[in-house]
C-alpha cells in the first residue's frame, strides 16, 4: 500500500530522515513510536507530500508518485498527481486543524463536494453517517470552537474518512488532548482498525499501540531502529535504544499515575 525506499530528508542542517525504508501492507495497522524529534511525524508528512523528500522514493499502491527521476534529475511530481494521492490518503493532525469558519457538517462535506465532485446531498448523507459513527451527530451544525478537543478530533477523523481514503495517517492525534478526552478518540481509531482500514499511527500511547497494531516501528534520530509484532516488541525489544525508550515511557506513565497502561 505504502512503500518507502531509502528516503532521506533534511531540514537545513538537520538530517531528519536517514535512509528510511518501510512498507505498509493493505489492511495493516502500523504504529510508529519513538522519542520526540525522532522523525516519526516527518515520515508521516512525507507520505502525503506535506514535506518533500531529498532522496529515495515513496510508492503509494506501487506507483512511485512523489518523486520521479527525469534525465537523472530529481523532480517533484506535478500538483495534480500530488492532489490525487492526497485525496486517497487521509490524514489526521495533532492539532485537529478543523476549518474554523465552517460548521462541523461543512468541514466534512467541503472536500467530497469540491475535490471529488460529489453532489451536496450525497456528501451530506455520507457526512451524517460518519458523524453518527464518531458519536457526534448532534453537533452537525456546531462550529469547531464550540467543541471540546476530543470532539474536534473525532470530527477531523470523520472529515478524513469522508474522502473514502485507502489509507489513514494519524499524527499524534491524542497528544494535544486533555487526558480524559484521549479515550473517546482512541475508541474511534480502534473501530477503524477493527474494520480493516490500512493505518499508520504515530503515537505516544504505548498501551494503545500494543493493542491495535499489527506491527510496531520504533524510530530514533531519524532512523528505524527496530520493528516487530507488538507482543515481541514490548516483551523482548532487541535493541538497547528501544529498551531505553520503553523504560522511559514506563517511568513517565508511572509518574502520571498509570492513566495509560504500558
Amino acid at each position: 500500500m505504502i512503500r518507502l525506499e531509502h528516503v532521506n530528508k533534511h531540514f537545513g542542517e538537520v538530517h531528519a530522515l536517514k535512509d528510511v525504508s518501510l512498507s505498509v501492507a493493505k489492511g495493516e495497522v502500523l504504529s510508529v513510536v519513538g522519542p520526540s524529534g525522532s522523525g516519526k511525524s516527518t515520515m508521516l508528512r512525507c507520505m502525503n507530500h506535506l514535506e518533500t523528500i531529498d532522496s529515495g522514493t515513496i510508492y503509494i499502491d506501487e506507483v512511485p508518485v512523489y518523486q520521479t527521476l527525469k534525465n537523472g534529475k530529481r523532480r517533484t511530481d506535478n500538483d495534480r498527481a500530488v492532489e490525487a494521492i492526497r485525496a486517497k490518503v487521509g490524514m489526521v493532525f495533532q492539532s485537529f486543524n478543523l476549518f474554523s469558519h465552517l460548521s462541523v457538517i461543512e468541514n466534512i462535506t467541503v472536500a467530497p463536494i469540491h475535490v471529488l465532485g460529489r453532489s451536496s446531498s450525497d456528501a451530506m448523507a455520507e457526512a451524517n453517517a460518519l458523524l453518527d459513527k464518531v458519536g457526534l451527530l448532534a453537533k452537525a451544525n456546531a462550529y469547531p470552537h464550540e467543541l471540546s478537543g476530543g470532539q474536534q478530533q473525532r470530527v477531523a477523523i470523520a472529515r478524513a474518512l469522508a474522502m473514502q481514503p485507502e489509507v489513514m495517517l494519524f499524527d499524534e492525534v491524542t497528544s494535544a488532548l486533555d487526558p480524559e478526552l484521549v479515550g473517546e478518540v482512541l475508541r474511534v481509531v480502534r473501530t477503524l482498525a477493527d474494520e480493516g482500514m490500512t493505518m499508520v499511527v504515530v503515537t505516544h500511547e504505548m498501551g494503545f499501540a500494543r493493542e491495535v497494531s499489527d506491527r510496531i516501528v520504533f524510530m530514533a534520530d531519524g532512523r528505524i531502529v527496530e520493528e516487530g509484532a507488538p507482543a515481541a516488541f514490548f516483551a523482548a525489544p532487541q535493541q538497547a535504544r528501544t529498551r531505553e525508550f520503553l523504560r522511559s515511557m514506563w517511568e513517565r506513565n508511572r509518574q502520571l499515575g498509570g492513566t495509560v497502561s504500558l
Partner: peptide, 18 residues
Amino acid sequence: VPQGQIEAAKALGMSRRK
C-alpha cells in the same frame, strides 16, 4: 491564516485555487 488550516486543506487533496 494558520498553517494548520492550509495543511488540512492540502491533505484533503485541494488544489491551490480551491
